[in-house]
Simulated assay, not measured.
Amino acid sequence: MEFTIGGRLEVRMTADDVGKRVSVRQTVEGGGARAKFTDTVGVLTSWDNGVLSITSRSGESVRIAESSLVAGKVVPATPARRRGPRASFEELTRVSARAWQPAESEALGDWRLRASSGFTRRANSVLPLGDPGVPLDEALRRVRAWYEERGLPAYVQTGTGAEGAQERLCAQLEGYGWRREVSAEMRVAALAPLGDMAAEVSRVRLARSADDGWLSRYQRVGTPGHPPGAHVLKVLGSGPSVWFASVPGDGADEAPAAIGRCVVDGRWAGFMAVEVAPDRRRQGLATTVTAALARRALDEGAAAAWLQVETDNEPARALYDGMGFTLHHRYHHFRSASA
Rank of each mutant, 00 (worst) to 15 (best):
G225V: 07
A198S: 15
S96K: 00
G31D: 04
G72R: 04
L293T: 07
V221A: 09
C170F: 00
R296N: 09
R330D: 14
L319G: 11
E163K: 14
D312P: 05
F89Y: 15
L113V: 10
G6I: 00
L194I: 03
S202G: 07
A35G: 10
G151E: 02
R122T: 08
F334L: 05
G42K: 05
E148F: 00
C170D: 03
G30F: 08
R295I: 00
H328W: 11
A33S: 14
V41Q: 03
R282T: 01
G133M: 07
V309T: 14
D110G: 12
T93Y: 11
A304N: 10
P240I: 06
A318C: 02
I54V: 15
G266D: 05
A292D: 04
S23E: 11
L136P: 10
S53L: 14
T93S: 15
L44W: 02
A337F: 03
W214Y: 12
E300Q: 14
V28T: 15
L140Y: 06
R150M: 07
K36E: 07
P79L: 11
R82M: 08
A189E: 07
G249D: 00
A198F: 04
A297L: 07
A337M: 01
A80I: 12
A297T: 04
V201E: 10
A139T: 09
R114P: 06
G195T: 01
Q172D: 15
P102R: 05
M272K: 02
V182A: 00
F89C: 13
M323Q: 14
Y155C: 02
Y331I: 03
D321M: 10
V143Q: 08
V22H: 01
L307E: 02
T4C: 08
A304L: 00
A230M: 02
D279M: 00
D137E: 12
E90V: 15
T326C: 05
L136N: 06
G175L: 11
E185G: 12
V134E: 09
